[in-house]
Design a protein around this nucleic acid. Structure first.
Length: 282
DNA sequence: CTCACATGTTAAG
DNA sequence: TTAACCTGTGAGC
């Protein structure tokens, strides 16, 4: 689940359910027992996300820093009849008399100070989901980097919150080959990708889904069966290896890059050709 | 049932 | 570059 939209959605939910309230904090599993004891019984002031990092703020300049990693889940249950006993490995539980939220499988769950939170924020690139984000900060890195744009998009110090799905999909939508060096992009191309990311990710926050296909490529418009897997969203290339491209019918391609699966369409995202003497594909 | 794999990151080699 | 971490899902037997 967890790309940036998941964390922002979660921050909104936690703020709504627990903001301003005095809460019980526990770690049934035990691995966050020390931190939980410190903030147990104090008031939640807010919750905010920066990229894939989530911070729940408590009175007294204390923050619970959460990073879901690949498998983490943070399930919020507002207005339940009764608070149930924890099931499985619950690292962190936030609870009032009528609502609770359980964190499982996270890579990070730690009590931090304001300074530590600021340090996390400082090493993050601009986040398309934050209104104050400056895409030029990302361009300053992308525009002079020889690294593939597919690598740069996943680098959280370049852009914060983009994961493997948004990477694959935004590159497809802009017809850019993932291995193309960052510095060969035009600034206007980056700006267009950024604007698109803002739109796609804001949709993700609203719906909890990643849907990236344009109206003319929806299952209804194309008369094709909808995608059925655990992600649910309608996408162009992510995890569609070998299946026909929704635009050109060519089989979707894949390759491992930096330990992550890359997906693209060989026809819709042609290999970038540099103007170097040897004329080889970059 | 077991197994591979996953929307992520860090640290070791 | 690789393993390690933590959990859920789906495929296959």
């Amino acid at each position: 689940m967890p790309e940036g939209h998941t964390l922002h959605r979660l921050a909104n939910e936690l703020r709504e359910v627990f903001g301003g309230r005095v809460v019980r904090i526990g770690s049934p599993q035990g691995r966050f027992a020390d931190g939980a004891a410190v903030v147990d019984g104090s008031r939640v002031l807010g919750a905010e996300a920066w990229g894939k990092h989530l911070f729940v703020e408590f009175e007294g300049d204390r923050f619970v820093h959460v990073h879901l990693g690949l498998y983490g889940t943070f399930d919020v249950h507002p207005a339940v009849e009764e608070i149930p006993l924890p099931v499985g490995q619950v690292r962190l539980r936030i609870a009032t008399a009528s609502s609770y939220a359980d964190l499982r499988g996270a890579t990070t769950c730690a009590l931090v100070t304001l300074a530590e939170r600021d340090a996390v924020v400082a090493r993050s690139g601009p986040d398309p989901l934050r209104k104050d984000a400056d895409p030029d900060r990302a361009w300053a890195r992308i525009g002079r980097s020889a690294a593939p744009i597919g690598t740069l998009l996943m680098d959280q110090s370049v852009v914060a919150g983009v994961g493997n799905v948004y990477r694959a999909e935004v590159l497809f939508r802009h017809r850019i080959h993932p291995l193309r060096p960052g510095r060969t992009l035009r600034r206007t191309q980056w700006q267009a990708m950024w604007d698109d990311l803002v739109e796609l990710m804001e949709y993700g926050v609203r719906t909890g889904r990643i849907d990236t296909v344009r109206e003319e490529h929806t299952p209804e418009a194309m008369g094709r069966p909808p995608r059925v897997d655990d992600h649910g969203g309608e996408v162009y290339v992510y995890r569609r290896t070998g299946q026909p491209c929704h635009v050109c019918t060519r089989p979707v391609r894949t390759q491992v890059l930096g330990g992550r699966n890359l997906f693209w369409c060989g026809r819709c995202q042609p290999v970038f050709r540099s103007r170097a003497r040897d004329g080889r594909a970059a």
